[in-house]
C-alpha cells in the first residue's frame, strides 16, 4: 500500500507540472479562441532565453555569477522578451488573420512553432544547459523516516509555485479591469469590441501572460531535466490534460493535470508490465479519448449548443 501511495503522490505532483503547461494553452484559447500549437516552443524559448541571460549578464554587467541580482535581472529580461514575442505575434500573425477561420489561426501557430524554435536556437545556440534554481531534488526526510514514502522536495516546490500561479491568475481574471476585459473578449469578441474593449491590446496581454506562464514552466522543467529542445515536448503532456479539463477552464487544467499525472503513473506501474512497459506516452491520450466519449466538452469546458 505504501508503494501505491508513493506512485499516486508522485503522479499528482507531476500532474501539477502538466497543468502548468496546460494553463498557457487555456489562457490563449479563452481570450482568442486560438489553439496555440506554439506553447511548447514558447516554453523552450523562455527557458533558453533565461539561461542565456544568466550566462551573458555577468560578462555584460560585472555582476556576480550565480548571484541573486543576476537571477532576477535575467528573469525580468526574459519576461520582457516574452512580451516582445507577444507583441510581434499579435502584429505579424494574429492581426493579419482577424476574422479568418480558427483552423487558419491554428495553422499559423504551427508555423510560429518552427519560427520560435529556430529563433531560440539561432540566438542562444543549441547547447544543452543545466539550470539550478537552488532547490534540491532530494526526498523529503520526514516522509521517508515516518512513512517510507519518497516525495521529492523539488516536486513539492514546483507544485507550490504552480498553485500560487493559478491562484494569482484566477484573482487577476476575477478582480482586475484587464481580467474582466479578457473574460468579455473570451465570451464574445464582437460584443466586447462594441463596448470599446481594445481587442488587439487584450490579445497582446493574454499572449504575454501565456509567455509568463511559459517562462515559469520552462524554468521548472528546465531545472528538472536541463534546458534543451525536449522542453518543447512538454506540450504533448498538456494535450490530454486539456481534453480532460476543457480548453477554456483554468480549474479544469488543474484537475485534468492531477488526473492525468496520477493515472499515467499508476498505469505505468500496474498495467505497464503486462504490455511491455513504456505506456506513459500514450495512456493519457487513451484516457482522454475515452473521456471525450462521455463528456466531449471536458470536465469544466463550456457546453457548446448550436441551434438548428
Amino acid at each position: 500500500m505504501q508503494f501505491f501511495f508513493e506512485v499516486l503522490i508522485g503522479g499528482l505532483l507531476s500532474g501539477v507540472l502538466y497543468a502548468l503547461v496546460a494553463l498557457g494553452f487555456v489562457l490563449i484559447y479563452k481570450a482568442s479562441g486560438v489553439f496555440n500549437f506554439a506553447q511548447g516552443a514558447m516554453v523552450f524559448f523562455a527557458a533558453l532565453t533565461f539561461v542565456g541571460f544568466l550566462e551573458v549578464l555577468p560578462g555584460w554587467t560585472g555582476m556576480e555569477e550565480g548571484g541573486r541580482a543576476v537571477f532576477w535581472l535575467a528573469f525580468v529580461l526574459s519576461l520582457a522578451a516574452m512580451v516582445v514575442l507577444a507583441i510581434a505575434t499579435e502584429k505579424f500573425v494574429l492581426r493579419p488573420l482577424v476574422n479568418q477561420p480558427p483552423i487558419t489561426l491554428f495553422m499559423a501557430t504551427i508555423g510560429l512553432t518552427f519560427l520560435v524554435e529556430g529563433i531560440a536556437q539561432g540566438i542562444w545556440g543549441a547547447n544543452v544547459r543545466g539550470l539550478d534554481l537552488g532547490i534540491a531534488d532530494v526526498p523529503i526526510e520526514y516522509m521517508m523516516d515516518n512513512f517510507n514514502i519518497l516525495i521529492s522536495s523539488f516536486d513539492v516546490f514546483a507544485a507550490a509555485v504552480a498553485a500560487v500561479l493559478v491562484a494569482a491568475l484566477a484573482l487577476f481574471f476575477q478582480y482586475t479591469r484587464i481580467g474582466r476585459a479578457l473574460r468579455a473578449v473570451a465570451d464574445d469578441h464582437q460584443a466586447a469590441l462594441s463596448i470599446g474593449i481594445p481587442l488587439r491590446h487584450i490579445w497582446v496581454i493574454v499572449w504575454a501572460v501565456a509567455g509568463f506562464v511559459a517562462l515559469v514552466a520552462g524554468m521548472i522543467w528546465g531545472a528538472r531535466n536541463g534546458v534543451q529542445f525536449a522542453l518543447t515536448f512538454t506540450a504533448l503532456k498538456a494535450l490530454p490534460v486539456l481534453i480532460l479539463g476543457g480548453f477554456t477552464s483554468v480549474p479544469g487544467a488543474i484537475v485534468g493535470g492531477l488526473i492525468i499525472g496520477a493515472s499515467e503513473k499508476l498505469a505505468e506501474v500496474y498495467v505497464g508490465p503486462f504490455v511491455g512497459g513504456g505506456i506513459e506516452s500514450w495512456f493519457p491520450y487513451i484516457l482522454a479519448l475515452g473521456f471525450l466519449l462521455i463528456r466531449p466538452e471536458g470536465l469544466f469546458g463550456e457546453k457548446h449548443i448550436d441551434r438548428v
Binding site: 508522485g10 515536448f233 503513473k265 506516452s281
Partner: peptide
Amino acid sequence: AHPGNEQQSQWL
C-alpha cells in the same frame, strides 16, 4: 517512453 522526460514510475 519517448522522449523520456518523465521517469518517476520507472525509478519507483
